[in-house]
Computed example of a mutant assay.
Amino acid sequence: MSTNALRVRRVRGKGAGLGLLAWLLGIAFFLPIAWMALTSFHSEQDAATNPPSFAAALTLDGYREFFGAGGGASPWPALINSTVASVASTLLVLLLAFPAAYALSINRVRKWTDVLFFFLSTKMLPAVAGLLPIYLFAKNAGMLDNIWLLVILYTSMNLPIAVWMMQSFLAEIPVAVIEAARVDGARLPTILARVVAPISLPGIAATALICFIFSWNELLFARVLTGVVAETAPVFLTGFITSQGLFLAKVCAASLVISLPVLAAGFAAQDKLVQGLSLGAVK
Rank of each mutant, 00 (worst) to 15 (best):
S82N: 09
T83G: 08
T83P: 00
T83S: 13
T83D: 01
V84I: 14
V84N: 05
S86M: 02
V87W: 02
V87L: 07
V87T: 03
S89D: 07
T90L: 07
T90V: 15
L91E: 02
L91P: 00
L92A: 12
L92Q: 04
V93F: 07
L95G: 06
L95M: 08
L96S: 13
A97K: 05
A97Y: 02
F98E: 15
F98P: 14
P99T: 06
P99I: 02
P99V: 01
Y102N: 06
Y102G: 13
A103M: 07
A103T: 05
A103G: 07
I106E: 11
N107F: 14
N107R: 11
V109Q: 04
V109N: 05
R110P: 01
R110V: 11
K111Q: 14
W112G: 02
T113R: 15
T113M: 13
D114P: 13
D114M: 12
V115G: 11
V115L: 12
V115W: 10
L116K: 07
L116D: 13
L116C: 04
F117P: 05
F118A: 09
F118I: 03
F118M: 10
F119H: 06
F119Q: 00
S121T: 14
T122Y: 11
T122H: 02
T122G: 08
K123E: 15
K123N: 04
K123P: 08
M124H: 11
M124W: 11
P126M: 05
P126D: 10
A127D: 08
A127S: 10
A129V: 14
G130R: 02
G130H: 03
L131D: 13
L131K: 10
L131W: 12
L132A: 07
L132G: 00
P133I: 05
P133C: 01
I134L: 12
L136Q: 11
L136V: 10
F137Q: 15
A138H: 02
K139N: 03
K139L: 11
N140Y: 12
N140Q: 12
A141H: 13
A141M: 13
A141Q: 15
A141V: 06
G142R: 09
G142V: 01
G142H: 04
G142W: 11
M143K: 15
M143G: 07
L144K: 05
D145H: 02
D145L: 00
N146H: 09
I147E: 07
I147D: 03
L149I: 01
L150W: 00
V151W: 02
Y154W: 03
Y154T: 03
S156Y: 15
N158C: 09
P160D: 06
P160N: 07
I161R: 14
A162G: 00
A162Q: 03
V163Y: 02
W164S: 13
W164G: 06
M165F: 04
S168P: 12
F169H: 14
L170K: 02
A171F: 14
A171I: 01
A171V: 10
E172Q: 13
I173A: 04
I173Q: 03
I173D: 00
I173G: 03
V175Y: 08
V175D: 13
A176L: 10
A176E: 15
I178M: 14
I178F: 07
E179I: 05
A180Y: 09
A181Y: 01
A181F: 01
A181C: 01
R182D: 09
R182G: 10
V183L: 06
V183W: 06
V183G: 06
V183Q: 15
